[in-house]
């Protein structure tokens, strides 16, 4: 199943954010572009959180997402957050992947509110990747707050766990995009 975006337009007040944007996503792809060119708005439309002014979107089924913010339940541990949205994800599997991305036993016991920014981001990324019924992945700047070594680990996890599902990963980090090795679509203000 592919994500098919046709002639999508969206404006907020007088500001045009997307204009006649079309794209077919039939596997994992990277979306790059400068701030304010509509990347996040596009993902929010795909997630059904914004309504486009014109245009259509098809093929987004049971999505999982990394939002601009981490959006973890603060009172739950990273592990509990993953299991909560995992749709059948086992605790063992979630713990294995969290440990692979650098979580220690002590960090696994902490509520999300007490994790560092980078730890929260990794948990939010794994939440999307490990959601068992997700057929579409929409990842908005998932490597924010990670150092180069962690970005490399996280990118490897993304490639391994995303598989061939239709996925859009938004990043402004060219090095991270290269590590993924996915086709890159550049969204520029001119195109919008």
């Amino acid at each position: 199943m592919s994500i098919v975006i046709q002639n999508l337009s969206k404006r907020f007040g007088g500001k045009v954010v997307l204009q006649n944007f079309s794209w077919t996503v039939d596997g994992p792809q990277v979306l790059m572009g400068p701030s304010g060119c509509g990347k996040t708005t596009l993902l929010r439309i795909l997630l059904g959180l914004e309504t486009p002014d014109t245009g259509t979107v098809t093929g987004v089924t049971t999505p999982a997402a990394v939002f601009q913010e981490d959006r973890l339940c603060p009172q739950l541990t990273a592990l509990d957050n993953l299991v909560l949205t995992g749709h059948g994800l086992t605790r063992a599997q979630a713990e294995r992947e969290l440990r692979a991305l650098g979580f220690t036993g002590a960090e696994l016991a902490l509520p999300a509110a007490r994790l560092s920014g980078g730890q929260k981001r990794r948990a939010a990324l794994l939440r999307a990747l490990l959601c068992q019924d997700a057929q579409t992945l929409l990842l908005d700047e998932p490597f924010t707050g990670m150092d180069a070594e962690l970005v490399a680990q996280a990118a490897a996890a993304v490639v391994r766990l995303a598989g061939s599902r239709p996925a859009i990963l938004v990043t402004h980090d060219s090095a991270a995009a290269e590590l993924l090795g996915w086709p890159v679509r550049r969204l520029t203000p001119a195109q919008t």
């Binding site: 997630l47 059904g48 959180l49 049971t62 999505p63 999982a64 997402a65 939002f67 913010e69 959006r71 339940c73 909560l84 949205t85 749709h87 939440r127 959601c131 019924d133």
Partner: peptide
């Protein structure tokens, strides 16, 4: 509200 959006996206 952001957590509620997350819950909606993840079909909680």
């Amino acid at each position: 509200a952001q957590l509620l959006e997350m819950a909606r996206v993840y079909r909680l």
